[in-house]
């Protein structure tokens, strides 16, 4: 009976959320074809302790490879390890995450196996002769449906495309034989330097609170920062007028000539919505606009609009978010 292999991504000795997504996806495929879920976990010595967590999401077997050379991602050795495991087993499909690492690893593995691959997929299913996946193109303007012919079918799953679901698996742990010494690879990542970790990157933040000229002065950006802090996982953005005035650094600018963003929630505070700004944020999933001018173009793209003075509305909103957070904790 064919099984399904999932690559469980870890970073800094901890499993990432996408690891559980990959295992969950593999579980769904395995349940459809009636096979087992095998998860591969690679990392520095000590990573084996995390195997149990994968079992909670449905991994029947966790194949662990510990090596000091896996402290950082090792492209060649990891791909070789996964490819060898696939060759040794009978796998219908191999699931990666389309994370930064997965975007590198999945194609490498597919090339070694000469298998069909689809990257960055948002849904998947198994039919009699193929694994069928969907893949958005042109920044979401089209969705392609692809049939992956042959075994195994390899795909990488867009982060966040599915929600990890707890489902107990047997969770047997196996060791993996190293097919290549990671420290002898041609490409060795020696260090990873993190950027300013205190500040969420605008491109990655799920929530952006953005301020415009309506705030009237640099010091009033405190209102925007407070609202962002209340959400916790929010970044602060600004319009061109604001960065031109020097109220915020140019790196905070959202718009055609600044950052192009598409967060889950975009709160526009005192922003009228010039075309140059709209071009940078209108694909946000939910837009909330606060402006005292009800004719402001921003309301045309907003899902929720609040007509009112930002100096009244924003503090009230901040208080409401804080209260909601407290009651949910």
């Amino acid at each position: 009976m064919p099984n399904v292999l999932a690559f469980a991504e870890a970073r800094g000795g901890e499993l990432r959320k996408v690891a559980f997504e990959a295992v969950t996806a593999a579980r769904q495929v395995a349940d459809q074809i009636g096979g087992e879920v095998h998860a591969i976990l690679v990392g520095a010595p000590g990573i084996a302790a995390k195997a149990a967590a994968l079992a909670e999401y449905g991994a029947d077997v966790v194949i662990v490879s510990e090596h000091a050379g896996f402290t950082h991602y090792s492209p060649e050795a990891t791909a070789a390890l996964v490819a060898d495991r696939v060759k040794d087993g009978d796998y219908r499909a191999v699931v990666f995450s389309a994370s930064q690492q997965g975007k590198d690893l999945a194609p490498r593995t597919a090339a070694k196996l000469r298998s069909a691959i689809a990257t960055d997929v948002t849904s998947f299913a198994v039919s009699a002769d193929a694994v069928i996946v969907t893949h958005p193109g042109y920044t979401g303007k089209v969705v392609q449906t692809l049939r992956l012919i042959g075994t195994p079918a390899i795909f990488s799953l867009r982060p966040g495309a599915i929600t990890p679901a707890a489902k107990a698996g047997a969770g047997r742990t196996e060791g993996a034989t190293l097919s290549a010494d990671p420290s002898a690879a041609r490409v060795v990542i020696t260090d990873t330097v993190l950027g300013d970790t205190k500040k969420l990157d605008l491109g990655e933040a799920p929530i952006i609170i953005s301020g415009g000229r309506g705030l009237k002065a640099a010091e009033h950006f405190k209102l925007v920062e407070d609202l962002a802090a209340a959400f916790g996982n929010a970044a602060v953005g600004a319009t061109r007028a604001v960065t031109d005035e020097g109220w915020r650094p140019h790196s905070d600018q959202i718009g055609q000539t600044g950052r192009l963003v598409s967060p889950d929630l975009y709160v526009a505070v005192g922003i009228s919505g010039a075309i140059q700004h709209l071009a940078g944020m209108r694909t946000s999933k939910c837009i909330v606009a606060i402006n005292k001018d009800k004719e402001a173009p921003i309301f045309k793209v907003a899902d929720y609009g609040i007509v009112g003075d930002v100096f009244d509305v924003v503090p009230a909103l901040t208080a409401a978010v804080q209260q909601a957070k407290q009651s949910s904790n």
Partner: peptide, 19 residues
């Protein structure tokens, strides 16, 4: 900063990414 304009012109036929 003009790269988005070039890309939008190519993809959307407008300097801004409108459909």
């Amino acid at each position: 900063e003009i790269l988005p304009a070039f890309e939008s012109l190519e993809r959307n036929g407008s300097p801004w990414a409108f459909q």
